[in-house]
Amino acid sequence: MKKWRTWLIVLGFLGVLVGLYLIGWKVLHNKAALLQAHMHIPRPRPEPVMIFHVRGREIPIVNTVFSSFLAMVVLVILAGLVSRGLSRIPEEERIRRPRGWQNLVEWAVEYVINLLEGAAGRARFKKRPLGRMIFPLVGTLFVFIIFANWFSLLPGFSTILVKAPEAVPATAGEAHAEATESGEGTHAEPFGLVWLLGREQPGEAVPLLRAPNSHLAVTAGMAIVAIVTVQGLAIAAHGPIGYLKHLATDAPIWMRFIMFPIHVVSELSRVISLSARLFGNLYGGDVLLAVIFNLVGIALPAIFFGIEAFFYYIQALLFSVLTTVYIVLAVGGAHAEEHAH
């Protein structure tokens, strides 16, 4: 009897989904033109687009940077609001207990601390537990990444369009000449630089907000901070000479000449792997959502929003846990050596 009811609920759910899909399909086919006008999602490109200038034309602002600053401002305001009437538990347990938002934030902070301490294990840096020591940096990275990622799932991201500033008249003619010459115009700039600096689309409608981490420069900045911390802590733990020895491993002497460059390259490639992973996932998620929106446009995208929310959480987790693991690997070597000698 109970089994039947479960199956009925599942079937009803599927029926509702299929019905919504059919309605969406029908609407899409009947009013394709109307929907194209109203629901057209601009096709995302990997390069962020410049949306306005600060100080005349000196500092161009691209949309990902604008939305990352927006995310930071919202985070700071939320933190200020939450930390206004904090209650301290051990001393005032009878009088005040954490209420409302404080509970949530304490839970989140505890979650991140447990995560980092679990990843760091029993590693220590100068007799202090490593997980708790690096929490301010890696925890901040985690909070910013996950907040910026989930922030970018809100409605309005990459759908609100603004008019990009017009080109400077003097260079407009040149740009136009280039565009007619090469046929495509915006592709004239060297590859890679555009991904980092953003693209100019003078006078066109461009999205005002975009996922901050779908900009290679944003993720590369965070990855560089993480890797510089790793190298700095490694040098602080081993000393400069010990650090070079650590890179050269304990192999026989002729082998060390081969191992040393390999290890240097592998240390440097972590910047690329950390930043490209986050960037690729965020940009891929953007493309996936746009494709699904253009495909069905009703009901189905909701499921993909859920999937993307999970993926974004995993990416934030990975970034912080991998940073922790790199730090533990770099610092933990000294620990092992101390015991060996």
């Binding site: 490109r45 990997p46 390069e47 995560l115 679990g118 990843a119 592709h187 590859f191 792997s273 490209a276 992973r277 960037f279 690729g280 996932n281 940009y283 891929g284 995993i314 990416q315 987790l317 990975l318 846990v321 991998l322 693991v325």
Partner: peptide, 26 residues
Amino acid sequence: GVMIVGIGLAEAVAIYAFVIALAIIF
């Protein structure tokens, strides 16, 4: 926890392919 980190490391290779595909297209 360890499995998710390992999956992320393996997935990075697919992400490199994705970035290369983007570079080819754009």
